[in-house]
């Protein structure tokens, strides 16, 4: 009986994922309404619940894809993978006001460059404080503080050690998870409530998953503006970290 049910869930993995997300969402909105009196938004709870389940999945299965490594939740990995995420992000652009975008184009581009530099040097400073002295490791960890893709791309380009590359991914993951969780809470304090601020936010943070999750829980209307700048960030980071930024670090150490 149980085996037949499990096989049914595994054989229809994406459909199981739809059901799973539906149940998580329902529970989250219930918690939001009844336990927080609607103060914490349902989608913020759903994302946090997703992260907790990802942690549990990692403990249980020991893989790298959180809950998605458990066979019956394999579809969650597909639904939540980069392909569907990016497809849905593109769809959010439908209905974007072209005027807002044109007005904030320059500042969007500026915030991407500033964002990469800011994140990189904070990461590099922390690496130095924790005792790293070779320029390759410092650069790789700094790059990981940009995003968890910029870290390994830079580390591989500079032939950093596997440990340091893994560490750079961990830094990027922490950043992305924190942005997902914290954004809805700090949004009112920093006036993250309009398209211009959302474009600056996307450019400074740069982590597509963090920005996608953070804005979804703050105000879904802002998603396309933040996502737009964030999707250029990883490319800019991969361009700058192993070249200009590495040279600067190399001069200092």
């Amino acid at each position: 009986m149980i085996e037949i049910l499990i096989n049914t869930l595994i054989d229809n993995s994406i459909i199981t994922a739809f059901l799973f997300v539906g149940v998580v969402t329902y529970l989250s909105y219930w918690i939001s309404r009844n336990l927080t009196a609607g103060i914490i938004h349902g989608s913020a709870i759903a994302i946090t619940l997703g992260l907790i389940l990802a942690y549990a999945g990692g403990l249980y299965e020991g893989g790298t894809r959180g809950l998605a490594d458990i066979p019956i939740f394999a579809g969650v990995g597909i639904l939540g993978g980069a392909m569907f995420r990016d497809f849905a992000i593109v769809a959010t652009a439908f209905g974007v006001d072209l005027k807002n975008l044109k007005e904030a184009g320059m500042i969007g581009a500026l915030s991407i460059v500033l964002g990469v530099i800011l994140s990189f040097f904070i990461g590099a400073i922390v690496a130095v404080l924790f005792g790293y002295t070779d320029p390759v490791s410092i650069t790789t960890i700094g790059a990981g503080a940009a995003t968890y893709i910029v870290g390994p791309v830079t580390g591989t380009a500079l032939s950093a050690s596997a440990d340091v590359i893994a560490l750079s991914i961990a830094v990027g993951l922490i950043k992305s998870i924190l942005v997902m969780i914290i954004t809805p809470f700090v949004a009112p304090l920093i006036k993250l409530n309009n398209p211009h601020a959302a474009m600056i936010f996307g450019g400074l943070m740069g982590t597509t998953s963090g920005v996608a999750g953070g804005l979804a829980a703050t105000d879904p209307k802002l998603v396309p503006y933040g996502a737009m700048t964030a999707t250029f960030y990883t490319g800019a980071g991969c361009l700058m970290a192993p070249s200009v930024l590495y040279l600067i670090i190399n001069l200092m150490f």
């Binding site: 999945g57 990995g77 997902m180």
Partner: peptide, 9 residues
Amino acid sequence: IVVAMAAKQ
């Protein structure tokens, strides 16, 4: 999709 994405981090 973002919720599923969170669950696979």
